[in-house]
């Protein structure tokens, strides 16, 4: 028997919205520690990895490891029926072919029950090694979203280059070219919210090219976190990570573009 409950069901809806345009369906792997999900886009350029810790749930019970094969578009249809402040409970039997989703309003005056049919998904799981990245940037997620959206009107590819002082996003296209640089926030600045700062940890300057179409897709997760962390290395995937306070994180890996 698998059972979990989230006070803010809305968070789960946002999570599904953050993966469903990239990956059609996937296996929720539930064990005693939490829930994880991994999926690749159809052209195998991007990988999304979701990790939810049991501590983030108000209730969590997993007697035996279960795999829930879920079609995200179908799940999203059911989650649409959930109220913005509803509590969400998910239940599944060990060998069942469906999972139940219960939405309950704050004052318990409205309870909705949905039963989602599960799928058998034969999906290869990739092993993502722990890597030391050459540059790690933490910045406001809304700022990253705006940059990706605005630059994609000019070109398809963004070049991200990082130095100790700044991170630069450059684009070129038929109409011309441009770049936007964000300077590392002053370390002595004790005023203001940390989540509004730009922090750069650098081992070595890096520059890599990425498809803006995918980065724009990743920014669907902006609603989940005030900040986003970008980790870059040479000739390795970019990691775009959104951390949710104590619930866990969603990470997107994007393979770089290289000169042929």
């Amino acid at each position: 028997m698998f059972e979990c409950a989230l006070i803010q069901g809305e968070l789960f809806r946002k999570l599904i919205a953050s993966v469903q345009d990239l990956v059609q369906d996937g296996n929720f792997m539930c064990d005693a520690n939490g829930i994880s999900l991994q999926g690749m886009d159809s052209s195998h350029v991007a990988l999304v990895a979701l990790a939810l810790k049991k501590e983030g749930f108000v209730e969590y019970r997993c007697d035996r490891d279960v795999t829930l094969g879920i079609n995200f578009a179908n799940l999203a249809k059911m989650l649409k029926c959930m109220g913005a402040k509803d509590r969400l409970s998910i239940r599944a039997q060990d060998e069942g072919d469906s999972a139940s989703f219960v939405f309950e309003s704050e004052d318990s005056s409205r309870v909705s029950n949905f039963e989602l049919k599960l799928m058998q998904i034969d999906q290869e799981q990739l092993g993502v090694p722990e890597t030391q990245y050459k540059a790690v940037i933490r910045m406001p997620s809304s700022e990253f979203q705006r940059i990706c959206k605005d630059l994609s009107a000019i070109g398809d590819t963004v070049s991200i280059s990082v130095t100790k002082e700044a991170v630069k996003f450059s684009v070129g296209g038929d109409i011309g070219s441009g770049d936007m640089s964000l300077r590392q926030s002053e370390s002595g600045d004790v005023d203001g919210d940390d989540s509004e700062k730009v922090m750069i940890e650098l081992e070595e300057p890096v520059q890599q090219n990425f498809a803006l179409r995918y980065l724009n897709n990743f920014t669907k997760a902006t609603a989940l976190s005030k900040t986003v962390t970008l980790s870059l290395g040479t000739d390795m995937p970019l990691v775009t990570e959104y951390k949710m306070d104590n619930l866990g994180s969603i990470r997107y890996y994007l393979a770089p573009k290289i000169d042929e």
Binding site: M40, L126, N209, P237, P256, K257
Partner: peptide, 14 residues
Amino acid sequence: HIFQINIVLFFSTK
């Protein structure tokens, strides 16, 4: 010309 790499090249299959 810029060429997009396949991500499977970077990560091994479990």
